[in-house]
Design a protein around this nucleic acid. Structure first.
Lengths: 116, 116
DNA sequence: GCCCTGAATCGACAGCTGTCAACATAGGCC
DNA sequence: GGCCTATGTTGACAGCTGTCGATTCAGGGC
């Protein structure tokens, strides 16, 4: 999970500044792959844009014309990519976006050295 | 190609600000899918980080242990996603990154309203 | 304990993706 | 024109991915 906040390495300097190494590319690709599905993008956005920053699964199934196991599968992919976290509270499971992961990706994609 | 510079619509407000619509999600997913392969990430980075901002295919095949047709395939995916452009000059074809597309993605992923 | 509801996992299957070898196309040079 | 080099395209094939129905697991309320 080298993309997570903890990683201090050069993993997140902009793509355009220097060629990304093999290992970093593999790690980044894993996260981008999680974002490469329209359903997952909307799920992430639904969770992140919600007031309070969290949503339970039941609220996430409704907007889609998909089965609950399918939504659950997509949420798992987002979780394993470090883009969301899940917390069980009683009967329900609440999901939250992980801003740090989003920030890392944004930094990597920044076309000019705005980060400097 | 609604992600290209031309599009003035609300397509690129941050993911976390409001739920992304179905159409925008599909378009974004297309571009993220192009970034979801380690080889393509490295290709994009190799092109963008190059001094002069461009690289010919011959220079891009070399760093990989892959056949030239495979690299050509990946470059086509990047091209169709609007992430790079290709220009033929004589015998060689030169690729360039498209900063505007990268910028859009970075804006969409920005966790807080830095854009405002 | 028993049942009910919310969520995750499993098994299966169609469709997509990355890769290659073989071939086709484009431009320069003799 | 004819050849050579640099790219792109095609066809094929293994492996991954999104989806579902069926099942299982977790908590709460009776």
């Amino acid at each position: 999970m080298s993309i997570q906040p903890g990683a201090p390495g050069g993993c997140c300097s902009p793509l355009v500044r220097e060629p990304v190494g093999e290992a970093d590319a593999a790690e980044l690709a894993r996260v981008f792959k999680a974002l490469s599905d329209p359903v997952r993008l909307r799920l992430l956005s639904l969770v992140a844009a919600r007031s309070g920053g969290e949503a339970c699964v039941c609220e996430l199934v409704e907007p889609f014309d998909l089965s609950q196991p399918t939504i659950s599968h997509h949420l798992k992919v987002l979780r394993e990519a470090g883009l969301v976290t899940a917390e069980r509270r009683g009967t329900w499971v609440y999901y939250r976006a992980v801003p740090a992961t989003l920030g890392r990706l944004a930094a990597v994609l920044t076309p000019e050295a705005v980060t400097a």
